[in-house]
Design a protein around this nucleic acid. Structure first.
Lengths: 202, 202
DNA sequence: GCGCTACTATGACCGCGGTCATAGCGGCCC
DNA sequence: GGGCCGCTATGACCGCGGTCATAGTAGCGC
């Protein structure tokens, strides 16, 4: 977890806390007061920093999550480059491993905040829905870019990036329900040859 | 949509309505009174049929969704068998098509109720979480069985079934966020060769 | 020191929603 | 026809939670 608490201003901490709580309990079950308390921020700051109310806070939490996921991809790539030549399956394995490690260490209490925002708000709140869409986009883009760098044709790179994130999101769901990381390890194992096959020219 | 309203008893209708509303708005945002009204059932019947309260109703809605998804698989297989020899990619395409058709016809307002229950309840409600896990199981099992029937080795069949459902769930998420069925058609296109490759012996 | 701006502090309001309590009603059996 | 049971009807309770109003404080420039 990044900047996991004190440093940074209270505003940013509240956005971060909102994302954390949404990850665990969903949007509706996450209260504003709860966010402030979790962030160690004064309750009065809520209406000051987020005059748009809960919608705004949730929106920024979703944005934050999207940027965070995108940045992680860059870190994974850097890490993979240090130890050898990055492969599509290696990248995907790194993305998934983040979840398996978290789950096996700390339990299956948390999911993806973007997924939560989508399932709960897509039908009723257009702004939040849009925020989720752009979050997925800012997550998918670096993945697709990385794939092209590895030799995947540009047209397929975007498709494979979507497939990777779809499979990851779905496996997260199943893993949480089953409280078992089986689904996560399964998708990475089954998808590996397909991903690496696309990288080899021809 | 099955038995889409009047026939069947009020109890079953309420379970069905609960699943519908959860699909659209999530668990927390779905009210008991709303369920009764949507089902055209008297409010007083709620505490009579579901003395366990909302937890019980949600649990049964999740169970129902799992059974429904499992039964759909059987129907898809029957349909595919009528027009030719079923293939793994054909089955997956049929599963996904159900969603693309619904989305393109009626908008992107609804998702998977099991997904909603998982994201919102997994951390706090063990019973609902278990219900979601068994729902995924009763959905995955017929898919895996179908794959083995098509010549996929038993060990891989279960894995591929999990991959299919993961990819589908994730693509549903992205499609709802983007209000575009692109993600759904993408995963079916990209996964097709992998799935059919597993069916060919060797 | 005055005043302005950024931030904090609280309490109140008000609707929503799950749950409980209590009572009415319609059959069906004996 | 009396009683029991499956079902319905309603109203009340009560906590939660988002939002608003209103006021207080701290720093800083002039």
């Amino acid at each position: 977890m990044p900047g996991s608490s004190s440093e940074r201003g209270p505003r940013e901490r509240m956005v971060f806390s909102a994302a954390q709580l949404i990850r665990r309990d969903g949007v509706a079950a996450t209260g504003m007061r709860e966010v402030a308390e979790h962030a160690g921020a004064p309750r009065g700051s809520l209406q000051h920093y987020f005059p748009g109310g809960k919608r705004q806070l949730v929106g920024e939490a979703v944005d934050w999550a999207g940027r965070y996921a995108g940045n992680r991809v860059a870190r994974f790539l850097a890490e993979l480059s240090r130890t050898g030549t990055p492969t599509p399956s290696g990248l995907f394995a790194a993305m998934v491993r983040q979840w398996t490690e978290e789950y096996e260490a700390g339990g299956y209490g948390t999911g993806c905040p973007v997924a939560a925002a989508t399932t709960e708000c897509a039908a009723t709140d257009a702004d939040t829905r849009r925020a989720a869409a752009t979050a997925f986009a800012t997550w998918t883009a670096p993945v697709a870019a990385a794939l092209t760098d590895m030799g995947v044709p540009a047209t397929r790179a975007a498709s494979l990036a979507t497939l990777m994130i779809s499979a990851l999101e779905g496996a997260i769901l199943i893993a949480r329900a089953e409280q078992d990381s089986r689904a996560l390890t399964t998708v990475v194992a089954e998808l590996a040859p397909l991903l690496d096959g696309a990288a080899a020219p021809g």
